[in-house]
């Protein structure tokens, strides 16, 4: 893993090509992470993949997260892996919530990492994050006519309460 100084070095190098791309760096529990501006996501991912000395060629996982009370609300996480040095780095693209009627948007990285295809569709399915340039951005796990983005924190868990006579009698 790149440690905290190593991360700052990476940040400095990214800043040369993409000024303002890296918003923050973090190092916790032995995991390095870069928080980036979603406008530069392809640039940063491409740099981490191709720049000499980096070589994070393997995208282990792409997933979204919802940090509801915090702002910006959404993040798309890219867990990159360098298989030669056995190092992981997480790139977090922070996305603001554009409000009720529109969806957060970010560029798709399917061109860089073909493995992201299903995982971007999953993030779209559950969080309503639109990946621009994705070849087939449709719902993947839920029915096609489903309404809502179920894994957002403000979406109810759903299901049915279990009712018992006793509770109904005394409290219902």
């Amino acid at each position: 893993m790149p440690d905290a100084p190593g991360l700052e070095l990476i940040r400095g190098e990214i800043e040369q090509d993409h000024p303002g791309a890296v918003l923050d760096t973090g190092f916790e529990h032995g995991c390095a992470s870069l928080a980036i501006d979603p406008a530069h996501v392809l640039g940063v991912l491409g740099w981490l993949r191709d720049a000499p000395g980096q070589g994070y060629r393997f995208l282990s996982s792409l997933h979204a997260a919802d940090y509801l009370p915090a702002e910006p609300r959404f993040a798309v996480h890219y867990e990159l892996l360098n298989r030669d040095r056995v190092e992981r780095i997480r790139v977090k693209a922070l996305l603001a919530d554009p409000g009720e009627d529109s969806l957060p948007e970010i560029d798709s990285c399917v061109e860089l990492f073909p493995t992201a295809e299903f995982q971007e569709r999953e993030a779209y399915d559950f969080f309503g994050i639109v990946f621009n340039g994705h070849p087939d951005l449709t719902r993947i796990l839920l029915p096609e006519d489903y309404v809502g983005w179920p894994q957002r924190r403000d979406f109810p868990v759903g299901g049915e309460p279990v009712t018992f006579t006793y509770n109904e009698r005394n409290y219902g």
């Binding site: 997933h63 919802d66 867990e79």
Partner: peptide, 30 residues
């Protein structure tokens, strides 16, 4: 905090992402 932890399952890399918000329940498990 948040953490991604991967192990080798019979089918390949099985990763678990946990996002904790300081409460007794995880904010996201992926």
């Amino acid at each position: 905090g948040e953490l991604y932890y991967a192990i080798e399952s019979p089918r390949g890399e099985l990763g678990c992402f946990v996002l904790a918000d300081g409460s007794a329940k995880p904010a996201r498990v992926h």
